[in-house]
């Protein structure tokens, strides 16, 4: 435990660059970074295209089995061919991207909320609460989460998309909690927190209205990078058959057809487009996240 005995003449390091206009600076840095900017544009296009197209498309029509069009190669009718049930790959790709993105965003938000809550409380109060929370978090960070998620997905009766997201959330909030906790721990030592206490502000208000705004840029960066990770985890689980049910198209499910060696070897149109799409999506989100991270670092250097 650090003993805050007497501050004497020492002046704590202050991040002068941490200005209130953080969002606009982040955005400016993002636009200045060419790779990240292109990635961001691409992401917007994909999201707009996929969500737009999925309004017009009929999911039931796409997942309907057509025995007269099994394993069709790409053609004018089926832009990317069909799968073993004669279902249009292109349509599944659109719906699947929408589903993967939606669940990625949902899980990122849920884990973000839990992680921020736990991390903030743990770091702000410190002491016993912090000790218990962090031992718990450390433990789950060590465990092979993928395996445990698979086991829970199997164990849960009445498995659905909701329970799938909840199980993912239950095991994926620890990373962000640990990060927020360490930042909150630094932040609460600053005098503005002490000042708020002497001014009669409640701990609750200090945590959420004084400390939290100062963590916003780190939260944005982490959530962006987590989004890419969560899309990867979801598609990985769907690939193994523990994600979306097969009736709900997902990018992972499309790739999972490649577990059949014949499909992998001979019918690339089924699995390759989805693979490339996931890769490019994750690469773009990562690019944006890394650029945001650099932007926050640069501001710290300038300070």
């Amino acid at each position: 435990m650090r003993i805050d005995k007497d501050s004497g003449t020492q002046i704590p390091d202050v991040d002068l660059g941490k200005s209130p206009s953080g969002f606009s600076i982040l955005l400016r840095e993002l636009i200045r970074d060419k790779v990240a900017f292109v990635s961001l544009l691409f992401l917007f296009l994909i999201i707009a295209g996929v969500f737009g197209a999925s309004i017009i498309m009929d999911q039931n029509d796409i997942v309907k089995v057509d025995l007269f069009a099994l394993y069709e190669p790409p053609s004018a009718t089926y832009w990317l061919g069909t799968d073993y049930g004669g279902r249009d790959i292109f349509g599944q790709l659109i719906i699947g991207t929408r589903n993967s993105l939606a669940i990625g965003i949902l899980v990122t938000l849920l884990t973000g909320i839990i992680g921020i809550l736990v991390g903030l409380i743990s770091g702000y109060y410190g002491g016993t609460i912090d000790n218990i929370f962090m031992r718990f978090v450390d433990f789950f960070m060590v465990l092979p989460i993928l395996m445990i998620v698979i086991a829970f997905v199997t164990a849960v009766p009445g498995y659905s998309i909701v329970s799938f997201s909840l199980i993912m959330t239950a095991f994926l909030w620890m990373g962000i909690a640990r990060l927020i906790r360490s930042k909150a721990l630094q932040e609460k030592e600053l005098d503005y927190v002490k000042a708020s206490k002497t001014l009669g502000t409640s701990n609750f208000k200090i945590m959420f209205f004084q400390v939290l705004p100062n963590l916003s840029s780190i939260i944005i960066v982490t959530m962006t990078l987590n989004l890419a990770g969560n899309i990867g985890i979801e598609s990985g689980l769907s690939f193994l058959g523990f994600g979306f049910p097969e009736s709900t198209p997902s990018l992972g499910t499309l790739i999972s057809y490649a577990r059949n060696p014949q499909t992998l070897e001979l019918r690339w149109w089924i699995w390759l487009p989805a693979s490339i799409l996931i890769f490019v999506l994750m690469l773009s989100i990562n690019n944006v996240g890394q650029a945001l991270k650099r932007a926050t670092d640069a501001r710290q250097r300038r300070g």
Partner: peptide, 10 residues
Amino acid sequence: QDPFSSLNPK
């Protein structure tokens, strides 16, 4: 003491 850290920058 410290006029920098005692005012919330945000």
